[in-house]
Design a protein around this nucleic acid. Sequence first.
DNA 1: GCGGGTGTTCACGC
DNA 2: CGCGTGAACACCCG
Length: 285
Amino acid sequence: MPELPEVETIRRDLERVLLGKEILGVQVRTPRLVRTDPGELVAVLVGKYINRITRRGKLLQFHIAGEDRVMHVHLKMTGQLMCQVPGGLIAGGHPSAKIDHLPNAYTHVVFEFDEETTLFFNDLRTFGYVALLTPAAHEQALAAFGPEPLDEHFTRAHFFDALKGKRAIKAVLLDQTVIAGIGNIYADEICFRARVRPSRRTDTLTAQEKARLYNAMRTIIKKAVEKRGTTFSNFVDATGKKGGYMPYLMVYGRKGERCLRCGSQTITKSVVAGRGTHTCPLCQK
DNA sequence: GCGGGTGTTCACGC
DNA sequence: CGCGTGAACACCCG
């Protein structure tokens, strides 16, 4: 479920709560989702402190004080990181899994901190994972990612370079080795804002269209991070409200609704790069 | 009962 | 090799 803005929001929320806290216990309830020997995970983590939580694309990394191995957590489609704190629940992930009580049937790993702080890794479809990586494996995993969309060093020239080849622009935007962190929602929103059909092959794009795609990427991802993402619930407040980017969606999830830009066409849904794709047939060329 | 789904990876086939 | 498709992972929901 989560793309870059959602994972970044989770990262910030968790960091605020977990930094400097001692890990008192770890329970692996579903060993299948832990890519490290569960016994080793427990042995390495218990008694140590969370130093820092970082993010690359949609992947979270937990750095442990006095430990050179790094814990990776990927939420894939339906993963959640829910943190029970004195004030209630914070952080988030896929909103569908029930949170009336924790742990629940979808809780696969539990990290206990102090008396009142517990982190739950939940995943309904169990595509996500937790893994402890050696420094070399960690570096290797991160090397596979393309640049962060908002990295100041990721210039327009670099973006143009990333678009060489002749795949559909949407396939390129979704390719984590080309650009890290864009998923299906923001790929559609970026193409709409740039007024480019997601199925357009990159070798047919004009310099102007590529420039619009670059600007749209930066604008939309930046705004989405500011608004704490789109559809995931953060549960900071008791209402479990959605991420704040929802009102800014122009095409995603709006099939059959009137285009907010031209007002004359309705948004269509098709399949591009194997994913449900939302487009205005008039505004996007 | 069927199909779709905010992600990623891999086997295939052209 | 490049690229696209479909399946697989597994489960809820409309």
